[in-house]
């Protein structure tokens, strides 16, 4: 534990382990008691409000569980087989992976760059830019998606109108299978970027200032300071952004639901929409649950890979 922790904060490693030795390597009894006393209610809470429903859903996924059939026969892996044989599942999976990859990459890179730049601003520009970038996050997704839908509208939408002045377009945006995914990604990055920027800024505030002073005395350029100090020390933040960003991106739903409902055709069909359709439009809850656990497995694997990669990447 101490080793993995130290790995995330290399410059402090020395002092940390020295003091830890003074105190003793393992946790004291009072620490253990404190930990379990506070952790237990939280764990029980998760068991009751999260795991209990999750196991119910897991059980549903092994049953033919349809609103339109009074019986609920056990069918083993039948729902999973059905889902894997459904072409729509594979389309949704491809679209989801495409979305997640582009969205998370764009948000991480832009978020890190903008976050670092905005953090280096003087007041009031810092607060102003941070607010400007964060404003889209504060709008409700349904409303934001609907505004973008209006802006994207071919024929009379503002976006084509404005692009017309620059000699671009007109594009069909959400109305064409070729442009619908990029259009949804643009709207999602616009909406979500501020979240990443704010997290990176919060991460930067926790980096001790004297490290930058020292670097500056050693004659490091701002870029070097970013590369040598900010980036390694932001690893916990980056990891957090990567993991939560990916988990969120794999569950992309509202913006698709509020604009295209997966269309045209199935060009923007994503996994959670596929799940929602089966659960609450076709009332096949067993299949919906199976989809959920396939999605769960996928996200779990991706997360574990991310945790492993990022840990080893910055191991000192």
């Amino acid at each position: 534990m101490t080793a993995s922790k130290a790995a995330h904060a290399p410059p402090l490693q020395g002092s940390r382990s020295r003091l830890s030795q003074l105190v003793g390597s393992g946790p004291t009894r009072s620490q253990t008691i404190f930990g379990w006393i506070w952790l237990t209610p939280i764990l029980l809470y998760f068991a009751y409000f999260s795991y209990y429903p999750i196991f119910s859903a897991l059980s549903m996924s092994f049953h033919r569980w349809s609103l339109t059939i009074p019986e609920r026969p056990f069918i083993g892996l039948g729902n999973y087989v059905w889902v894997f044989n459904d072409p729509t599942f594979w389309i949704s999976l491809t679209n989801t992976l495409y979305f997640a990859a582009v969205y998370v990459a764009a948000c991480l890179v832009l978020g890190l760059v903008l976050g670092t730049l905005i953090f280096s601003f003087r007041e009031p520009f810092k607060s102003i830019m941070q607010t400007v970038v964060f404003l889209p996050v504060m709008t409700s997704m349904v409303v934001a998606a609907q505004v973008w839908d209006l802006m994207y509208m071919p024929g009379y939408g503002i976006l084509n109108y404005l692009l017309g002045f620059v000699g671009l377009g007109p594009y069909m945006w959400l109305q064409s299978p070729q442009t619908v995914m990029p259009a949804i990604i643009i709207l999602s990055v616009w909406k979500g970027l501020g979240y990443f920027v704010v997290l990176f800024i919060a991460g930067l505030t926790t980096i001790p200032y004297h490290l930058y002073e020292a670097a500056s005395i050693d004659g490091a350029s701002p870029f070097q300071a970013f590369w040598r100090i900010s980036l390694p020390l932001l690893t916990p933040t980056t990891l957090f952004c990567l993991v939560t960003g990916s988990i969120g991106a794999f569950q992309v739903f509202t913006q698709v639901y509020a604009t295209t409902r997966g269309g045209p055709g199935k060009a923007s069909h994503v996994l959670l929409l596929y799940l929602y359709d089966h659960g609450f439009r076709f009332f096949e809850m067993g299949r919906a649950s199976a989809i959920a656990f396939i999605l769960f497995g996928l996200v779990l694997i991706v997360t574990l890979i991310q945790l492993r990669l990022l840990r080893s990447q910055f191991q000192y």
Partner: peptide
């Protein structure tokens, strides 16, 4: 185990949770 709960989409937990 706690992190994993984020990965199960809410729509499938909705009905059991409602029953709770």
């Amino acid at each position: 185990g706690i992190i994993a709960t984020m990965m199960v989409p809410f729509p499938v937990r909705m009905i059991p949770l409602y029953i709770i």
